[in-house]
Amino acid sequence: MIEHVNPEFFKAFEHYKAMLEQFGKDHPITERAFLLTLHYTPEHIKKEMHQKAKELGLLPKPSGYLDNDTAVYAIEDIAKQLGISIEEAQAQLDNLLQIEQQLGIATGITLVDPNTVNKIQ
């Protein structure tokens, strides 16, 4: 089955690549372009990206699952996987969420109430 892809995704991705080349990956303009690209990324591509990240060992094992079977990750596990401090991981997450809010977009990065997480036994 052929999946529909919003043309805005392609525009956002091209813009992101140009900003990456011009400013580098850690520049605020590049970060915004990345989040816009993620916002327009179709769900089927996000699922493929998530699977590939797991295969490449870029993600820790999930800390638990929500009732809808969505995997959730503890900030401590993400920090360990990335080789950074918990504080640095939290600061990066806070920055991404702030940019989302400023742009008025949603990328799928969400914080959840720990009480709603079904822990892995």
Rank of each mutant, 00 (worst) to 15 (best):
G57Q: 05
E43I: 14
I120Q: 11
H44V: 13
V112K: 11
E55I: 04
K11N: 10
P28V: 04
A18V: 11
I109N: 00
A33T: 05
G108R: 00
G104M: 09
V72R: 02
E8K: 15
T30R: 02
K119E: 10
L97D: 07
N6I: 12
A74L: 05
G83E: 03
A89C: 07
N115L: 12
H39S: 06
F34K: 07
E43A: 15
V5G: 06
H4R: 15
K25C: 07
T116F: 12
I84E: 04
A71L: 01
L93M: 10
A89N: 04
K61P: 03
L56C: 01
I120C: 10
F10R: 13
T116A: 14
L56K: 07
L97N: 05
G24M: 11
L56I: 01
A71I: 01
I84D: 06
T116P: 01
N95W: 09
Q90W: 08
I120S: 11
L20H: 13
T107M: 00
P7G: 13
Q22S: 09
E76A: 12
K61S: 13
P62H: 02
A79K: 04
Y73K: 06
I2E: 13
A18Q: 15
Q92R: 10
I78Q: 02
G108K: 00
G83C: 10
K80F: 08
G64Y: 03
K25Y: 08
G104K: 07
E43D: 15
K46M: 04
D26Y: 10
I29V: 14
G24K: 11
A91C: 02
N6D: 15
L97P: 05
L66H: 06
E14W: 13
Y73E: 04
D94W: 07
Q98H: 12
T41K: 14
K46N: 08
P62C: 04
M19H: 07
I29P: 00
G57E: 04
Q22N: 04
K54N: 02
G104A: 12
Y65A: 06
I120D: 08
F9R: 10
L82R: 11
Q92T: 02
M19G: 01
K80E: 11
Q121R: 06
H4W: 15
H39E: 06
K46R: 15
A53H: 02
D94G: 08
Q22Y: 03
K17H: 14
E8R: 15
D69C: 15
H39W: 08
N118D: 11
L38A: 15
H27E: 08
T37E: 08
Y65S: 05
A12N: 07
Y40T: 03
I86W: 02
A53L: 10
H4P: 14
I105R: 10
L96D: 13
E88Q: 08
S63K: 09
E8F: 12
N95T: 12
K119W: 07
D69H: 15
L82Q: 12
L96R: 13
L35N: 06
D77I: 02
I84L: 09
F23T: 01
P62L: 04
K17W: 12
N6A: 15
Q90F: 12
L36I: 13
D94H: 12
I2V: 14
E8C: 11
N115Y: 10
A71E: 08
D113W: 03
K54A: 11
Q121W: 01
L58Y: 05
L93K: 04
S85W: 00
A106E: 10
H50T: 09
E48P: 01
R32P: 00
M49H: 07
G83Y: 07
M19V: 08
L56Y: 02
